[in-house]
Design a protein around this nucleic acid. Structure first.
Lengths: 185, 185
DNA sequence: GTCTATATGTTGATAGAC
DNA sequence: GTCTATCAACATATAGAC
């Protein structure tokens, strides 16, 4: 068997969940240790600092999202790819209404002080902007930069609003509107 | 003369500034005391808790925003009112790129745990949504709820994105686009 | 590699002299 | 009303036995 400990992965998973639900600053290492079932002192064997753990969370989320994108790219129609993205957001509407966008809310919180780790979170949103912009380009659109910003920011804004009003219907309404908008292009 | 101490107002002003720049949790009472020139122990004469101070910050911001709205309402054309709002956002583009939306980022941070104070921040965004929706209604539009959500969330999303990419041009681009969009209605 | 005990620092909040 | 000194709680991080 030679079964390797999965503690590192469990820590990342718990941290990702708690950072999203409670925020970075209100999640203590002790909370993460308890949620993952790893004793407090042992956390530091895997991650030297809390920021290191956050970096691992962001890296893992980056891989996940890039994985989805690769999967969507099996479909040659860039419109359909954008629909897949919007359907993904739609499927997360309840979580979004409860805790906001897992990426966006982390960016906003981390941008308020720290440097190296915030850059990493921002980079993920930047990557998404680029990917979305690419799809518009492949659709043969003009002003693709503006369209990319428009869609990326519509998604983020709708998360902020749905979270503030605690209403998943807002995500539903906006995703529906965005899909019709893209369909008519 | 009977000059009353303005310490309470100075505390609110400093807190509002620091909450926006560094976030709620990373701003200590000591930071606020220092910035406002009020000794640490004296802060608690004016505000029993940090949350009380945050509540005062939100209340003051609410008054400010409602004051602007009243001023804009002197203009009978609802389109022009919306332009005023977008121009205001535009004038804040540098601050937004640096620290995000003063309302939206606070909502997102506070929504991640506390109850009474978060409701208060959310209420401000909710009020703005209602005001924007009202302007579309006065313009004689149909689907005013959807239009309200669309514009409110476009503003918020553009703040998140501009902050993540640290680029005020994103605010500029989006506000320009939104103004053309409204103009053509 | 694992885990208990604890060092070290910072925070929100309070006591109490003035 | 004002301000210094400080408490008590909690955080991140480390020491060191196993």
């Amino acid at each position: 068997m030679n079964r390797v400990s999965d503690k590192r992965e469990r820590l990342i998973e718990s941290a990702a969940k708690l950072f999203h639900e409670a925020g970075y600053k209100d999640t203590s290492i002790a909370d993460i240790a308890e949620d993952s079932g790893v004793p407090l002192g042992n956390v530091y064997y895997y991650f030297k600092t809390k920021d290191d753990l956050a970096a691992a969370v962001i890296e893992q989320r980056t891989e996940t999202i890039k994985g989805w994108a690769r999967q969507w790219e099996e479909n040659p129609d860039p419109k359909q790819r954008l629909f897949k993205l919007l359907d993904l957001e739609l499927s997360l509407k309840d979580k979004i209404a409860e805790h906001g966008c897992p990426i966006g809310s982390l960016c906003q919180e981390l941008d308020k002080e720290r440097q190296p780790i915030a850059r990493k979170a921002d980079g993920l949103l930047e990557w998404q902007l680029k990917w979305i912009t690419d799809q518009f380009r492949l659709m043969g659109q003009t002003k693709t930069d503006q369209l990319g910003i428009q869609l990326t920011s519509a998604i983020q804004g709708c998360c902020v609003l749905a979270n503030a009003l605690n209403d998943p219907k807002i995500v539903e309404l906006e995703m529906g509107r965005l899909k019709s908008w893209i369909k008519e292009m």
